[in-house]
Simulated assay, not measured.
Amino acid sequence: MARFLNTSATNYFLEELIKNAKERLVLISPFLKLNDRIKELLIDKDRLKIDVRIVYGKSELQPEEIRWLNELAYVRTSFRKNLHAKCYMNEELCIISSLNLYEFSQVNNNEMGVLIERGSDAELYKDAYEEAQRIIRISEEVRISLERVNNDAEKDEDGSEEEKTTKLTSSKLGQRYKLKAAEFLDKMVELGYLELNSGKHQLTKKGVDVGGELKVSPKFGAYFLWPEDITL
């Protein structure tokens, strides 16, 4: 039977829902802003190879946070405009609540929610799950939208155009070698094209020399581009 949740209960069961996910985790929230606790939980799910889907309508992440998020191999993020639903679920529990993901653990706010247990409310859980899957299907997956980038032709000082080159993101190029995005970045560190500084990837001189670029998208934050003919 569905259970009513007040503010503190919503925060408690949301954390338990994330921690206890064994097969899948779906987080649907209009606003995406990750505090340290959420980051810890997502890192743990990624380490355990749990399939995590995050759907949001507006991101307040900083570029370095988006880069960090994109490097989690089992966490996929999707954007959906006009998103107002707030739904969090694993394979056994579902919370439908007024709580935005960025408000997690902010107990000053007054929130209400409903906890649905698959074991005792199978039909209700199924309805919520199917609607969550529909929202995921109609959302734009962030990594897909960044997979391929064609550089615009640039002009030299004499006005002549340089030859157009095609570059791919780390995620797309990694697919060619059957590597997850995080594994591909580890390989680039091993080859000396990237280095880790305080846990963040940075281009090295060697990486720049082979054509690597750091780009910042207003919508998606920072990411790396590489020549599509680069060899590992």
Rank of each mutant, 00 (worst) to 15 (best):
R3G: 04
R3V: 15
N6K: 14
S8Q: 14
Y12N: 13
E15A: 09
K19N: 14
K19H: 14
N20V: 11
K22L: 11
F31W: 12
L41D: 02
L42H: 01
K45Q: 11
R47I: 04
D51S: 08
R53W: 11
I54V: 04
V55K: 01
Y56K: 06
K58V: 03
E60V: 14
E64Y: 12
E71N: 14
E71L: 15
L72W: 04
T77M: 04
T77I: 13
S78A: 15
E92S: 07
L93D: 11
L93Y: 08
L93K: 13
L99E: 12
N100P: 02
F104V: 06
N108T: 11
N109K: 08
N109R: 12
E111D: 09
E111R: 04
E117M: 07
L124A: 12
D127G: 00
R134V: 00
S145D: 07
R148S: 12
R148C: 02
V149S: 12
D156M: 06
S160W: 05
E163Y: 06
S171G: 09
L173V: 11
A181T: 13
D186M: 03
L196T: 09
K205H: 02
K206L: 07
V208P: 00
V208N: 03
L214S: 06
K219I: 10
Y223I: 07
L225T: 05
I230P: 00
